[in-house]
Design a protein around this nucleic acid. Structure first.
Lengths: 200, 200
DNA sequence: CATAAAACATACTAACTAGTATTTTTTATC
DNA sequence: GATAAAAAATACTAGTTAGTATGTTTTATG
């Protein structure tokens, strides 16, 4: 294989496998050895491509995790249509679409936030960047909804955005405690009640 | 000191110090050695009182963490008065009362949930027990509010309880990403908007 | 095809991990 | 004060950790 391609392939391989392991077993308790075992490569390869485990962690956040949140929760907010409907559908459909694995292990971003955001400023900033973009997308949609007269103009888009993000990340954690989806159904009901309040 | 008292004192000392360390640095990355260093005791003492680190973890959850949630979020719900006011005050005052340390490190229960609930069923159950009691208290208060004609009888108490818990646990995580309280103020605004929806 | 550099492998370090086995110290009871 | 039991200390194991130093193999370029 060509050198540049080979290098890129290996970096991506490490990134993908480490994301999976971080998600399943946590960041701090997933060792570089374990990661490299799943890639069928060795430690030498790892430290050739990444200068430290911390650097890998930051790259997992800024690429893999950001991608996930974008695709699942941000991009859908920029589509055309009734703002309120988009909100309802995006949040509830996302929850319903999760696999058993994803229900069991919660939100990768939320896991990172709760495990290491308070340990290193670099992690904090990388994660904050994603949340801020999510928040911005929500505020954009809410403001558009106000212009389109489907959302009450007196409500604070900022406050609603923060509340929506909080509840979504929260339920991903709470779901870990249960072995069935009833708690997700309860959440969706509670959410739709909230969204109805936003009407003019 | 009397033997029984001494034993109890040591157990509590280990419990208290380990709770602090788990809260600050996480469960999995806090070693028994580190805990015993802060107690000025040795490993021999630890394994005399606890059969494993897992047993300690479970006891931290079922005593220290449960206590915290009870005092801060459950007991206040059983007081007399307007149900809606009690909800508003309990949730927002609790958030405002947190120290810098508590804002930085989030909710101890939520940290445990996101770090280890998906690893061992025993942890899952211990944590679920607390959440269920919190949920039950919320449902009790909401139902009382309905009887007192301050809460809309058509809403699902169950759904509202789940949504409130989710958003509260969520914001404790999100706050970790910020270095100021504006995101908490946003949350409180978003929450009050939600609670207003509950009126008849 | 020689040379250099990039990609990866091997072998190591020093510190840390949960847990155990054994001994010493403290307290209770006769 | 002798004896037993509980409380705690000491010393250890076997495994794991992030990271390094130094090799070998693969690819690119003259």
């Amino acid at each position: 294989m060509e050198q540049k391609q080979k290098s890129e392939f290996t970096k991506q391989l490490i990134l993908n496998e480490s994301f999976k392991l971080f998600y399943k077993n946590g960041f701090k308790t997933t060792s570089v050895d374990k990661i490299m075992k799943t890639t069928n490569l060795t430690k030498g390869a790892f430290y050739h491509h990444y200068k430290s485990k911390k650097e890998l962690g930051l790259e997992v956040i800024s690429s893999k995790i950001q991608q996930r949140v974008y695709e699942g929760m941000i991009t859908p907010l920029y589509q055309d249509g009734n703002a309120l409907t988009i909100l309802k559908v995006t949040f509830s459909e996302r929850l319903k679409s999760f696999s058993t694995h994803e229900k069991q292990h919660g939100c990768p971003m939320n896991n990172f936030i709760n495990e290491i955001a308070d340990e290193e400023e670099a992690y904090q900033l990388a994660l904050k960047r994603i949340v801020e973009e999510w928040k911005a997308a929500l505020i954009y949609l809410l403001e558009r909804g106000k212009k389109d007269h489907v959302i009450n103009t007196t409500i604070s888009s900022n406050a609603v955005a923060v509340y929506l993000i909080s509840s979504f990340e929260g339920i991903r954690g709470v779901r870990k405690l249960y072995n069935d989806d009833s708690v997700l159904d309860d959440y969706i009901l509670g959410l739709s009640l909230y969204l109805n309040q936003l009407k003019p």
